[in-house]
Nucleic acid binder design. Structure first.
Lengths: 198, 198
DNA sequence: ATCCGACTGGGACGTTTGTCCCACTTCGTC
DNA sequence: GACGAAGTGGGACAAACGTCCCAGTCGGAT
């Protein structure tokens, strides 16, 4: 087997773990399953990581750090704030449809983190990141539309995150695209009313 | 040990399983943990149930069947539709705050059901129930406020379920009551706009 | 060329898991 | 009171789990 320095191996294992968690769920993400996905031996696992828990913790932080601007509005002028916000949410929805298992994995990781006090901060950080990204998009949107949020943006962002979470969860269950679009529409509607549309 | 007929034992085991899942999570709900909670021996478990999976499946269906009208509006006249809807969501929120672990358990059970094709219908049924309950409340609310939904109620109900789901998830992570109330407010706002307020 | 630390493979360990077995006890029926 | 079905207890099983050990190998500095 090729010799790979420990730090790279950590990254490879984290990547493999994400694949396994996405495909089969956190419960099936055993050390052996992860190692098989990464194509290495068990010894390499425990050479790179103290324990499985350490790997999962790093998986969470890594994946959160890598989180993209999925809801960002397009940089197009001439649209209303409502149109921009709705388009942003719908873009997130397309992202969800493209890789549902990834979002499901995120959900499972959050739940996992919520289950032990020492890991709760990981979940909190995950959501803080979501909120920060949402706030960024919302500010950009307001700027593009020439509007102004009448409520602190962070507050608006929290609501947006809650709405997209709800959209994710319900769509994962019923896979009803039309219903999801209705949620997106209603959410954009509610959010826009927190702004002063000039 | 007292002799209990198998059907009663099934019920007792389901109840014990719910306690264990709520308190420690689905992953820790082993046959032994459940049996200890119920105060019986392992043999009794497999006398009442074929397998652990059968128990979990029954737990899901039982708990869904038992699901209460948590979002129902109070039967008070003279309130606007918005006030009724917001009050209903806030009442759900109080319910969530009173027993967060129960809602967390529900979430975990949904995720579990989503992970295997043959169990997916259980999750779908769970959400169908949520939607039916929500629709009922929304119709009652419209009646009390003398309003009329301009969109099919079931569609409105789906949006409501998505919003409460999002509220649940985000509150479980950050325990931010003010943010949750803001979500409730925005959600009620969005929903009310799907009605004709007379 | 040697050597030392970094890395690897395979096998093993002790636990915990779900499930099962079997001898036993209780209860309702005759 | 005998009897069979229903229910119980404790111990056992194999499989899967996380973790560890150790003999070995590679590669870069000396």
């Amino acid at each position: 087997m090729a010799r790979i320095p420990a730090p790279e191996r950590r990254a490879a294992l984290v990547a493999a773990a994400l694949v396994v968690v996405s495909r089969r769920g956190l419960a099936h993400a055993t050390t052996r399953a992860i190692v098989a996905e990464a194509g290495m031996s068990l010894a390499s696992f425990h050479y790179a990581f103290e324990s499985r828990d350490e790997l999962i913790d790093e998986l969470i932080t890594t994946v959160v750090a890598r989180e993209q601007q999925a809801v960002a509005p397009e940089e197009v002028e001439g649209l209303t704030l409502f149109e921009l916000v709705e388009a942003g949410i719908l873009r997130y929805f397309e992202h969800l449809k493209a890789d549902p298992e990834h979002e499901q994995a995120m959900l499972e990781l959050t739940q996992y983190a919520l289950r032990s006090p020492e890991r709760h901060p990981l979940a909190a950080a995950q959501y803080a990141k979501y909120i920060a990204l949402a706030a960024q998009s919302l500010e950009l949107g307001a700027e593009l539309a020439g509007a102004r949020w009448t409520v602190p943006v962070e507050r608006v962002a929290r609501v947006l995150v809650a709405f997209t979470d709800g959209l994710t969860l319900t769509w994962l269950v019923d896979r009803d695209d039309a219903a999801a679009r209705a949620v997106a529409h209603a959410a954009a509607d509610a959010l826009t009313r927190m702004a002063d549309t000039r």
